[in-house]
């Protein structure tokens, strides 16, 4: 379970998150929607302890993510993160992209890591690309590679930050299909997205964030189709 309690985060004088409370159960998919600059990415970065926080608490399976004594590298192994910019490692082949962290961090042998990597690459539909270099692939393929690379660390949770926003429209579908597959397999996900239809389809709950505050959170269908908060209504009327 991921528990965010009274989270405050600022960059210098700029208050970005102003008291976020959020609980995500194992097996649940929660989407986070909201306008540009509302603090959605920052929230994920705080959960992953990539960004420091000023106030509040984040517990991942009961472990305090921002405690000095917490091993951040161990924590991040639990929290697989995929970004808007896929950041494939350009000097490594597709297969090596996926095997690197399991070898270096988990100490798997090359053989172990490759067997596992092939499984995940097949899973995301890159079974024919093992020896390709990522820079020769499309954005959609690179994003699926990023997902496979993250899955190979066997995370308990996935944090997805607008993973389709940088893609050409015709490539969005293949990446969303991959996420649908993960959802079907019971992966716990926090999914920052601009794809409202997709959010409604795959999420259990949706949280609407504005100016660093969760203005509304509830059942996915209810939030999209029948928002209770007028700020949510205003936002949705603009994007839908």
């Amino acid at each position: 379970m991921i528990q965010v309690q009274g989270l405050h985060k600022s960059f210098g004088n700029l208050k970005v998150l102003k008291g976020i409370d959020l609980e995500v159960q194992k097996g649940e998919v929660v989407s986070v929607i909201g306008g540009s600059g509302s603090g959605k990415s920052t929230l994920l970065y705080c959960i992953n302890a990539i960004e420091k926080i000023q106030k509040g608490k984040i517990l991942v399976d009961g472990i305090d993510a921002h405690d000095k004594k917490t091993d951040k590298n161990k924590l991040r192994q639990k929290l697989g993160m995929v970004f808007q910019q896929w950041n494939s490692f350009p000097h490594l082949t597709v297969l090596e992209n996926v095997t690197l962290a399991p070898r270096v961090v988990l100490g798997q042998t090359t053989k172990q890591a490759e067997d596992l990597a092939k499984q995940y690459l097949d899973h995301v539909g890159l079974g024919d690309k093992y020896d390709e270099y990522p820079t020769r692939m499309s954005g959609g393929q690179q994003q699926r590679l990023a997902i496979a690379r993250t899955l190979a660390m066997k995370p308990s949770y996935m944090l997805l930050d607008e993973v389709t926003s940088a893609l050409d429209p015709e490539l969005v579908g293949e990446v969303l299909d991959t996420l649908r597959l993960l959802r079907k397999e019971g992966m716990t996900m926090i999914c920052v997205t601009h794809e409202m239809a997709f959010a409604k389809e795959v999420s259990d709950r949706i949280a609407f964030v504005e100016k660093g505050i969760i203005e509304e959170i509830g059942d996915a269908h209810q939030v999209i189709e029948n928002p209770a908060n007028e700020k949510t209504q205003r936002f949705l009327s603009k994007v839908l």
């Binding site: 192994q77 950041n87 690197l100 962290a101 270096v104 961090v105 993250t150 660390m153």
Partner: peptide, 9 residues
Amino acid sequence: IASRSLGMG
């Protein structure tokens, strides 16, 4: 950050 998020130090 992508590298660190994979658990690499």
